[in-house]
C-alpha cells in the first residue's frame, strides 16, 4: 500500500475512491444503457439478445466485470462507512432545519439514495444478471431468451414500479454524484467545470429515463 494508503485513511483519499469507482460505474451505465436501448429496435429482441449474448460470453467483458464488481463493492463499503462516519461528527442534532435551501436534498442524501440503489441492485441482479450468467432458475434457452424473460418479468406491475423507483433514485444519485466526482478530482476550470455540470445533469436524466422507460413500455405492451 504505502503511498496509496491515504485512499482508505484520509477524508479526501476516501472521497477520491468514491469518485474513481463512481466514474467507473458511470462508464458501466453507458454500456448497460446502450444495450438496454437495443430493445427499441423493435426487432423482437434480436439485437438486444445478440448484445446480451456478447456481454455474457466475451472473455474481456467477463474480466472487466470482475473489476466492476470489485469497484462496486468498494463504492458500497467505502460509501456506507463514510456516511456512518460522517453521521458521528455531530452528536447533537439541530433543533430546527434551514428554511433557505443551502444545498439540494439529494446531495445530502447520497447515503440513503445509495442504500436504495443497493437494495434495487440486489433485486435486479437476482432478476436478470444471475439468470444471464448462471444457469439458475432453469436458465436461458434458444426459445426463452433474456429478452423474453424480460417481457415476462415486466408483465407484473410490482417489479415495474420498483424499477421505476430505482431509476429515480439512480437519477438523483447521479445528479449529485456525476459532478461531485469531478469536484473531488480537483477539476476547477472556468469552461470545463460548467460543461461537466451540464453534461452530468443531462446524463443523470437521460440514462435513468432510458432505463425506466423499458419496463414501462414493455408493461404497456408497446414492445412485443
Amino acid at each position: 500500500m504505502g503511498v496509496l494508503s491515504f485512499l482508505f485513511s484520509s477524508s479526501i483519499g476516501r472521497k477520491l475512491v468514491m469518485a474513481v469507482t463512481g466514474v467507473s460505474l458511470i462508464a458501466f451505465l453507458v454500456v448497460h444503457c446502450a444495450i438496454n436501448a437495443c430493445v427499441f429496435f423493435m426487432d423482437g429482441g434480436a439485437t438486444f439478445n445478440a448484445a446480451a449474448e456478447f456481454m455474457a460470453h466475451n472473455l474481456f467483458i467477463r474480466l472487466a466485470e470482475v473489476g466492476l464488481i470489485g469497484g462496486l463493492l468498494i463504492h458500497i463499503v467505502q460509501g456506507l462507512s463514510l456516511t456512518l462516519n460522517n453521521m458521528k461528527k455531530r452528536n447533537n442534532k439541530y433543533g430546527s432545519s434551514p428554511k433557505r435551501t443551502n444545498s439540494t436534498w439529494y446531495s445530502r442524501s447520497m447515503g440513503l439514495l445509495g442504500t436504495i440503489l443497493l437494495l434495487f441492485l440486489v433485486m435486479h441482479l437476482k432478476d436478470f444478471w444471475i439468470v444471464s450468467r448462471f444457469d439458475a432458475q432453469g436458465g436461458l434457452t434458444e426459445s426463452k431468451t433474456l429478452y423474453h424473460f424480460m417481457l415476462e418479468v415486466f408483465t407484473n406491475p410490482v417489479p415495474v414500479t420498483l424499477y421505476v423507483l430505482g431509476c429515480i433514485s439512480l437519477a438523483y444519485h447521479l445528479l449529485h454524484g456525476f459532478q461531485s466526482a469531478f469536484q473531488t478530482f480537483g477539476l476547477n476550470h472556468p469552461i470545463l467545470t460548467p460543461m461537466i455540470k451540464t453534461l452530468g445533469a443531462a446524463f443523470s436524466i437521460i440514462v435513468p429515463l432510458v432505463f425506466a422507460s423499458i419496463p414501462v413500455v414493455i408493461h404497456l405492451g408497446l414492445i412485443k
Binding site: 477524508s11 462516519n85 446531495s107
Partner: peptide, 15 residues
C-alpha cells in the same frame, strides 16, 4: 480534529 468528510453538497459555500 474530528471534522467530517466532504460530500460536495455546497451548503458551506451557500452559507
Amino acid at each position: 480534529e474530528g471534522f467530517g468528510a466532504c460530500t460536495n453538497t455546497g451548503a458551506c459555500s451557500a452559507e
